[in-house]
Design a protein around this nucleic acid. Structure first.
Lengths: 338, 338
DNA sequence: GTCTGATGTGTGAACGTGCACACAGTAGGA
DNA sequence: TCCTACTGTGTGCACGTTCACACATCAGAC
């Protein structure tokens, strides 16, 4: 590895070593008319001097940052608990770094941070953005819409800007499908622990549940909880048991909620799946930890991240986005809880 | 917000608006002799034109990237499972972005990636690095040592470069302390499920366990498992039960391992904590999910991240690092499992 | 022989910033 | 009066890259 200590090699050094001008070196690097002999000499020189392009200089003249913002609109604590965000992040990061883009993480903790994010997005620090967990009516949606920043939403809030594509899963159809299976196993008094209904994912899962039950749907058998977590699940289940002791099936809005529900059922002396069938959502690590293991909807977090990154990259290449959004397949995983 | 659509404002625009030269604007921005009137005019102009400094141009002339690498030497899957990395990342990110540094995530999945990382670190893409989970004898340690890159290790492998500080917790002392408490509750046949002993954290936890037991230490009561996870915990516990059916206490190398162990104990018909006391490590979400809840060692992940970031920042400011490393307090959390 | 088009190559300018330097004005002391 | 020190300001250059332009060479057609 030559030049490890001294100054970094530049295009000038390559040009000198290969006996050509900077312009020709640039053409080898970026494409253009270059003779075979010159190209060979330059490529050899590049290896010899251990050339690595200077990102700052390139960005300066190209008027771009070669960075993509990964914006998570969640408090820190939720960011850590959500079983999908990590996978989405990793998936996006792989795709982005393969295309020589740098991912910049932005966790928007409080509402006040919106101003900071706006400044960041409009300040030229990123060439595009992947926005995760935008709540319905989130002000950031309008901001990104008015900026002409190539971006993509993970999830699909109803009121998002028509020009900005989304990638996600079909929460409604998956919720409907897994609820149907609960019906197919003979359950009749089926309840739901609905979480985070202020978000598109939460609202859609509830809608799918309702759609699957049809006339069997009973509003009193829906417990509303704020978060997708264990404690909320336990609380929601206790509410349901109180309202309807004969309950024999539960669709929990997430695996963590389902685990909480199973805990509450255990406390109440109900067996799963003998007395009550339980299904979850996410196929997170919770699902294989519970006893019995949990039937759930698999979220392809890695693919979602990769796809989202790809969509931003395509916009950056000037491709016209024709489809408003994509819903990736989210297969159901049958285990022991229902 | 003026200039939202057109070109971004530069120092020239400010200078023109304030009726001064670029140099004076630069001095307002970076400190230097500026008259009160000029300063006021410039500050007003800055607000008026909505100036945001161009990072690329600044980085180019300053010969730095204003970015810090957050390098995780783990496969993707482990990165997602580890209960601490997320918190460390968030903690580091907060400190870094407060200091106007950008965190760049690098997850080194395979051994081959070491070459890519080396190129990245020596290529001027980052001004410093936070390196997480370096295994003993990891080649990256030598690379960072030979580059004069300001960096810090999270954890403290024995053979790290003497000039590079570390931040972590005292795995040995904490392991010793929690094992002692197991002794204090009257347990006498105490085993350990040791995980990842090729890493400093794993080796230290085992050493602490051994030290606490003293003459009571029995090598046959240590089950070695490769990973800090649930499945390994269950397997390790079965091994221990087979070797010593009279076992009455277990120190698991992590909460996930402890949860697996509790599962194996349940299968074997042993009650926790009545028959067997169990303690874990990490104070992750596992600890409050298990029944009974798990006594464990709390890892201040957020603080570790923040402290690591701060140490890199201080090196960047030219501060001499006198202490080789810092061990943050990791209090023991007593719950129901022992 | 000269025009035209394709293929190569070199040069100058520009991107936006920070810093070194030159320079101007003022005040105080010898 | 001159020298020095201090405060304040403007200008040129450098950072490493890309791009537009000018120019050179060569083949084939007229």
């Amino acid at each position: 590895m030559p030049g490890k200590a001294g100054k970094r090699a530049t295009v000038h050094d390559i040009a000198a070593a290969a006996g050509v001008s900077r312009g020709t070196v640039s053409r080898v690097l970026n494409g253009g008319y270059v003779s075979a002999t010159a190209r060979a000499a330059i490529e050899r020189a590049i290896r010899e001097v251990g050339y690595v392009p200077n990102t700052a200089a390139r960005n300066l003249v190209m008027q771009r940052s070669q960075a993509i913002g990964f914006i998570v609109l969640e408090p820190h604590s939720l960011f850590l608990e959500d079983p999908n965000i990590g996978g989405i992040m990793l998936g996006a990061n792989s795709t982005l770094s393969a295309a020589d883009y740098q991912m910049v993480n932005l966790v928007v903790d409080s509402e006040r941070d919106t101003a900071r994010i706006t400044r960041y997005l409009s300040g030229g620090f990123v060439d595009g953005a992947i926005i995760v967990s935008a709540r319905t009516h989130d002000p950031i949606i309008q901001v990104v819409g008015s900026l002409a920043l190539p971006s993509v939403f993970v999830g699909h809030p109803r009121d998002l800007h028509p020009d900005i594509p989304y990638v996600g899963i079909d929460n409604l159809a998956s919720a409907e499908e897994i609820t149907r299976r609960l019906l197919a196993t003979g359950r009749r008094r089926i309840g739901m622990i609905a979480a985070a209904v202020d978000r598109d994912s939460g609202a859609d899962r509830l809608a799918g549940f309702q759609q699957a039950l049809g006339p069997l749907y009973d509003e009193t058998l829906v417990a509303d909880v704020p978060l997708y977590d264990f404690a909320c699940g336990a609380k929601g289940m206790r509410t349901l048991l109180e309202r309807e002791p004969e309950i024999d099936g539960v669709f929990a809005a997430s695996d963590a909620v389902a685990a909480g529900a199973m805990e509450a059922l255990r406390e109440a002396g109900r067996a799963v799946p003998a007395d009550v069938g339980v299904v979850g959502f996410d196929d997170s690590s919770w699902a294989s930890r519970t006893r019995p293991t949990l039937s759930t909807v698999h979220q392809p977090a890695d693919d979602i991240g990769a796809y989202a990154a790809d969509m931003v990259l395509r916009q950056l290449k000037g491709e016209q986005i024709t489809r408003r959004g994509v819903l990736l397949p989210s297969p159901i995983v049958w285990r022991d809880s229902a």
